[in-house]
Amino acid sequence: MSERDPLAQLLTELENPEFQEALSKLLELVKNLEKSGLLDMLVAITEPEVINRIFDMVITTGTMKLGDSIEGLLNKLGDVAEALQEDVKPASLSELIASLKDPEVAKGLGRLIALLKALGK
């Protein structure tokens, strides 16, 4: 809420070494973006019309629900990764049937069926 002249404020900022350092890094970033051709792409992408199209595609009922479940999904993925690391011996059909008594396996199977249903919609 400062009432000071913005130009004068900028000049004092320029004397601040922290700001000078940040500014030189920013220039380096801009140079790199230009060299790699990414700057051109960024300029094109940030055209309001393109941004609107991107938002329109990204913001849907599905993505809103997905965003909400990402936390749970990531935790699940962690568990899956852990299970993949485990040493297991090959299972027979009778072992597969027996394992259905395991509530975790039964629940997982239920999830799998729900997933298949959703995929078939």
């Binding site: 609107n52 938002f55 329109d56 913001i59 849907t60 009922t61 993505t63 809103m64 629900k65």
Partner: peptide, 16 residues
């Protein structure tokens, strides 16, 4: 406008 419109449509109570 278009961003908010997309959000409000995506989160319309009937759609959710």
């Amino acid at each position: 406008r278009s961003v908010f419109k997309a959000y409000f449509e995506a989160t319309d109570p009937t759609k959710l």
